[in-house]
Every structure is written in C-alpha cells, then in structure tokens.
Design a binder for these strands. Structure first.
Lengths: 233, 233
DNA sequence: GATATTATTGTACTTTTGACACTATGCCCG
DNA sequence: CGGGCATAGTGTCAAAAGTACAATAATATC
C-alpha cells in the first residue's frame, strides 16, 4: 500500500494589463522579513492554495481578488506546474515559513493567465498587503519559486491564442480604436503589421463592430471607436 | 488561519491509438466488485495518484505503464480538472472505497493525452489487472468520474494540435504511406481531404521524408513509404 | 487660415488554397 | 503470360488570401 499522498495545490495568476504605454504583468511583493541576506523579499505572481470546496477557476478568481482587489477578470487555465522541488529552493523558504502551516509541503500549482485593460480597470497598486504593482513585461526581475517560468509560459500561451481566441479585446477598453487594436497585436506578437492590411482583416471580423462614436480629447483627427460583440460569429 | 488543505492529486491519461481500422482510446476496467446494482464496474481512463517525489509528466508515464504496460508513449499535459465534486458521485464510491485509503478525499487530476501507433505498439489488451481495452472512439460508454469529459476535451485538444504540432506521426508506424497519413487526418479532423492537395502540402513539409522503400504485402501497386524526421524544420 | 498630427482608404502583385480526372504500377488469377 | 483489379501517383486553372505600398481627409492648435 503506497504512503498516503500529502501535497498542496495552489493557483497562480499571470495577469497581463495593457494600455497605450505597453503590456504589463501584475506582481505582488512578499511582505517584509528582509532579515537575512538571501531571503530579501521578492516579487511573485498572485497565487495561493485553493480551498477545499472550490473549483480551480473559482479559486483563481478568489485568490486574485483577495490579493489584488481585481474582480471579474478574464482568467484562463493554461498549465499545471508540478516539479517536486518547485518550492524547495533556499531563496523561498523564509517566506513560506512565514505564511504556511506546512512550509515544507510539496505544492503543485495550476497556472492561469488573465487579461485586463489598464484603462477600464484603473490600477490601484500597493493598495494591499505587501504591495501590488504593474511591472513592465521585460523589466521583471527574479521572482519567487518558478514564477519566472510560469510567466514565460503564460506569455507564450497568450501569443499563441491571441488571434484564434478573440481575447485581444479583454486587454482593451470597451471602446477602442483600430490603431489601439493594432498596437496591441504588434506588442503581443512582437512584429510590425501593415496598417491597411490589418484594417482589411478587421473588417472581416463580424465581432468587431463600429460604434456611432469617435475618439475625444485628442489633438488630431479623432478615430472611429469600435467594440467587441461576442455573440456574433 | 485557514484550515489545512487536504486533497489528492492524480494524473489521467487519454491514450489514443490508431491503425487502419480507426482511432481508439485506451480504457481499463475497474476490478470486480459488482455486488450492488448501481455500482457495476465501469471503464475508466488509466490514471492514479501521483507519488510524492515525482513530477507530473513522470507520474503520467509511470501510471500508464503500471496500468497498461505501455512504455515510452508520447504524452502531453492538456488540462487540470478540479471540480470539487468530480469523484463524489454515488456511482464511483464503491470503486474508490476498494482502492483508496481516503476514498472521500477530493481529487484534482491533471489530464494528459497520449498517442500511439497500434501497429508498432502491438496492443496487449486485458494483460493486466482488471483488463485493458482499446475502445472505438464513438463507442465509449459511460466512464467513471468525469472521464467522459476528460476524454472529450482531450480529443478536442488533439484536433486543435494535430496540424500545428507535428504529432500525427506519433499515431502512425515509423514507416507510413501518404494514404495512411491522409486517412489519419481525415479521421481526426473529421473531414474529407483532397488527395492531390494533401500530397502537395506534405511535399512542403521538410520533416516528412521519402524512404528508399515501398509498401509490401498489398495486392496492388505498393506505395512509397515515408518517415518523420523531427530534427529538420 | 496655416500647420501639425493621426485617420482613413485602394490597387497591383504574389502566394496559397481549392476543385477536379486521368494515367501508372504491381499483384492476382485464369 | 495477358487481362483485370485495386490503389498510387500526378498537374492545371480559378478563386481567395496575403503582401507591399502612398496619398488624401479630418480635427485641434496656434
């Protein structure tokens, strides 16, 4: 008879936030405890153990809300991470000991990526325990645990799914211009796109509909606003 | 302080097997215990709890081997299933009670899909405890737990990834004909393909290389054999 | 009203996709 | 050994999709 299994299960959320100044990722800072040298608090992805009576998607929503106050965010599971030593590194022990009943327990985590428009979800950073920050994607330093890998895989998933899954609109304001949409594509896919060809393609998408409204507050020709209509298609 | 988390983690493998007679899925039969009416043993996907010191991929390989003797199979994680009640249904209790120390424990499972060629991996069904069978995909009856959903999602994943991931070759013998490759595509994608256009496309794939060898044992013009060369591309 | 700034639009070319039917080869059998 | 059978193998044309490319239009500011 095998030994009784004993491990923890968590969810970790890689929340991407977008506005005209670029693509960011939401990180939280581990609380205090910078006593010893190699245990200086690091940033990490918002994540925590799931509760006994909640599903995984539900856990991701709850954990994200509890840690960052973000609510109703588009979240999608993308991969489980289960290396037996993923929380065993020295650098992470101090923090684990400060928050877990069983800090030595193995933890398997289910990764979610999340998408928000930084314009609609006005970011309220550091409003919570330990601090919350939107960090420029390519300025993310070393994170706790294997969170750098999780972040990388989440971004690769985003790149793969951006076009096929109608998710780009989750990163934009409800009303957006085609220039904004194109800039988003260029940043996520990391390549320049031709403006006229891009617009030709968008016109074929029945789920992107023009509104009777134009951009305001800009000092040049205001652009047509569009919105995403999921039902169509 | 939250209650200590206590749950089990398993892996479940949806192994697809292919030969000229179609696409099958590997199921195992729950052992005996058909005492009570609604607890007649059902088939299920090969799966079991992970061990404390193994990774997820490793667990999937081990569990598959222990339950079905299949070794070295292409396995890929596709989704975690964590409904809190996924192992709580009445129909599944008898079996759980017969095999688990803690039959009431919540179980989250990580789903893997697997691919084998039924020609190379000569199927040795019912060689093991409780019986092993290759079941025609559309003749799968009600399975234990949420295994029907897991199977469905695995198949959808296979359909989505077949073309982009060079995985079709895992379902074919090492040496295969273009007709076999096309038949596989037609079955997995569930649509007829044009022979000439299909071959035109294959010729563009540098990882599909013709061998100096032809089909034997057929009573008609023997076809050219091809093989998959992963390094190219 | 001139200027600055971004929005908006079309065309020619290339590449890819999709529809479609006949000839070739090897085996079997008489 | 020749005819029949079964599957292998191959090319062309039209439509659609993708790609490169630049001039005009609308608004705010000064």
């Amino acid at each position: 008879m095998p030994a009784t299994q004993s491990l923890h299960l968590s969810v970790d959320c890689v929340v991407f936030g977008y506005n005209d100044s670029g693509l960011k990722v939401l990180l939280i800072n581990q609380k205090g405890l910078s006593t010893s040298p190699e245990t200086t608090p690091r940033s990490q992805l918002p994540g925590d153990l799931i509760l006994m009576n909640e599903g995984l998607d539900q856990a991701a929503q709850r954990v994200l809300f509890e840690l960052t106050q973000l609510e109703g965010v588009y979240l999608k599971q993308f991969k489980a991470f289960g290396d037996p030593n993923r929380v065993k590194e020295l650098k992470d022990r101090a923090w684990l000991q400060s928050v877990r009943n069983l800090p030595d327990q193995r933890v398997v985590t289910v990764g979610y990526y999340g998408l928000v428009s930084l314009q609609d979800y006005e970011p309220r950073p550091s409003s919570f325990a330990g601090g919350v920050q939107w960090s420029e994607l390519n300025e993310v330093g070393p994170l706790a645990f294997d969170h750098n890998s999780i972040l990388d895989e989440a971004f690769e998933t985003l790149q793969e799914q951006l076009e096929s899954q109608h998710i780009s609109f989750e990163l934009l304001p409800k009303k957006f211009t085609l220039t904004q949409l194109q800039a988003l594509y260029e940043i996520v896919l990391d390549k320049k796109l031709d403006k006229r060809n891009f617009r030709k393609n968008v016109k074929k998408m029945s789920h992107v509909v023009p509104l009777d409204e134009k951009q305001t507050g800009v000092m040049h020709k205001p652009a047509q606003l569009f919105s995403y209509e999921p039902q169509k298609d």
